[in-house]
Amino acid sequence: MKVLLDIQALKTPRGIVATIVVLLCGLMPIIAPAIGESFYVDVFARTMIWAIAAVSLNLIMGYGGMISFGHAAFFGIGAYTIGILAFHGVTSAWVQWPVALILSALVGLVFGAISLRTKGVYFIMITLALAQMLYFLSVSAQRYGSDDGLTINDRSDFGIGFFNLDDDLTLYYLIFAVLLLCVYVSWRIVNSPFGMVVRGAKSNDNRMQALGYPTTRYKLTAFVIAGVMCGMAGVLDANLEEFVSPDALNWPRSGEMIFMVVLGGMGSLFGPVTGAVVFWLLQDFLANWRGFIGDHWAIIFGPFLILVVLFARGGIHGLVDRLFSRKGGAQ
């Protein structure tokens, strides 16, 4: 992968952080059992799925300036497609996955077309409202367990002997590969002429339009791509958890995704991955603190969020840049 093999990029502080995070994700199935903490393999599998969602959100939020407060909707669509198809006995991944991704794209198209008519706060609110609509739909879907959720008895079946998702390790490395692929795709998009237009529209929409670019159409395309990517995260989540419930698309999930992106560093390629890892590890750490803090960990976590917003501009990656680099960020 060019992004990783670019030695110059690796040498920057944020490159080093990204490398550490990627190595951690990649080697966790070996590290964790070795130190007698195989539990963390599951934690990392889950974390990487959220990282995929965060990477997809970063694409529109970090590079396109579209603050979507309803991104969890796509996560839910991906997961529910797997769940519902499995419920009806369709377990072939060759059917499930394309259906899930196409559905995500279609919903992205509709939601994007509606919400991109608005700007600023209106955009935040309308994406929130549209996602809540789907949330309520999933709660009322009696057939599919409504808010008890839907148990998925069989993971997606690729029909390939050695590539069986029932094997946890295979699933783990599939998630890992998809994560890297998503980062790679983001990188390609961001640096393509298409991405330049989207980024240009973020800083000055009017100018891009004056230059003759139909920015809304560009933004809509980015919105759909991000939706599909997040739908993919949902597909993987349904396979990992073997369960899906409306909770997966409720609005706090969207808020957490935004936080992962900002925590890691918005508009930096690996930022959301770092953000997701730190987010989950920190929550796990705080929630399992015995005593008062463990019982009331949100009293620490809430102010932490505010502090990150106030003092860590550019998230962890930005912070690392400022701490260790005289030249500032390489990007």
Partner: peptide, 9 residues
């Protein structure tokens, strides 16, 4: 964005 996040906190 900062406002959304901080007030979420």
């Amino acid at each position: 964005l900062d406002q959304v996040l901080a007030t979420f906190g």
